[in-house]
């Protein structure tokens, strides 16, 4: 890490490359199969989730062990969330919502380790996840309801003149969903990590000033500790928010009429 620069922690660094495919004879225009720190933490995230869930439920205990209980609780937590907001029909998207929730949660948690990389601080990752959700919503909604999916934009029981105002608003709000979904997660994680780094940087630079500076660095130190707690909360909360919004959007695809 380059000193106290709060931005460098988001830099995607190449760890090694699998080589370039599709390059011309000059070695240009190809797609690099580089393994970056971002990719490493995606692999770690998936590895941790899959290993934990599969190993902890290996015994299939009728009376669950503590590890198995955590898996079961997370299962029931997401299952209840999907069932309550998208209905029983929404349960076919349960694996998707569970994957999204666990991926974001664990990626955020990996990011909480100092010097580790927060995958969700990359706009491309959060945008891809949000677009995945919207693609599922649109494809499933159109496949299941046909043109009835457009009822999503026409709330029932509203007089015709007001519809001219409401429908554009509904369309706009639908279009802004992927934007808000991706930017919320990206912004929270990015800002949190920058603030943490800034306060941690204050400690270092104040301590370098001598005894008085060391004394003065108590305040940013307390702030850094408090912010770490807050960031853990934000990490879990953002995963939850992403998952529950996914459920709500899926509910729109399943039951487009308001």
């Amino acid at each position: 890490m380059a000193g106290t620069d709060p931005i460098s922690q988001f830099k995607v660094k190449t760890l090694f490359s699998f080589g370039t495919i599709g390059a011309d004879e000059n070695g240009a225009n190809g797609v690099d199969l580089v393994f970056t720190n971002s990719a490493l933490f995606m692999v770690l995230t998936v590895g941790l989730i899959a290993t934990y869930l599969i190993l902890s439920t290996r015994g299939r205990g009728l009376v669950p062990s503590r590890l198995q209980l955590v898996s079961e609780m997370s299962y029931e937590f997401i299952a209840n969330m999907v069932r309550s907001s998208a209905g029983t029909e929404g349960m076919k998207f349960f694996p998707l919502v569970f994957s999204l929730f666990s991926f974001i949660l664990i990626a955020n948690m990996w990011g909480m380790f100092p010097y580790f990389f927060a995958v969700t601080s990359q706009i491309i990752i959060t945008a891809a996840l949000a677009l995945l959700v919207m693609a599922v919503v649109i494809i499933y909604g159109v496949w299941k309801n046909g043109f009835g999916f457009l009822k999503l934009f026409v709330p029932s029981g509203i007089p015709l003149p007001i519809l001219f105002i409401v429908v554009p608003i509904e369309v706009l709000s639908f279009l802004s969903r992927p934007l808000s979904l991706s930017l919320r997660l990206f912004g929270n994680i990015l800002a949190g990590h920058i603030v943490l780094k800034v306060f941690a940087g204050f400690i270092v630079s104040l301590s370098a000033l001598g005894a008085l500076g060391m004394f003065g660095s108590i305040l940013p130190f307390v702030m850094a500790v408090a912010l770490t707690g807050l960031e853990f909360l934000v990490s879990a909360l953002q995963a939850f928010v992403f998952a529950i919004l996914t459920c709500i959007y899926l509910n729109d695809a399943i039951h487009p009429g308001h």
């Binding site: 995607v12 199969l33 692999v43 995230t45 994957s99 491309i124 996840l129």
Partner: peptide
């Protein structure tokens, strides 16, 4: 590009 590639790979495996 690389991030999307690895996201698709890892998230696909996770799913």
């Amino acid at each position: 590009g690389p991030q999307l590639f690895w996201l698709a790979l890892t998230f696909g495996v996770l799913y």
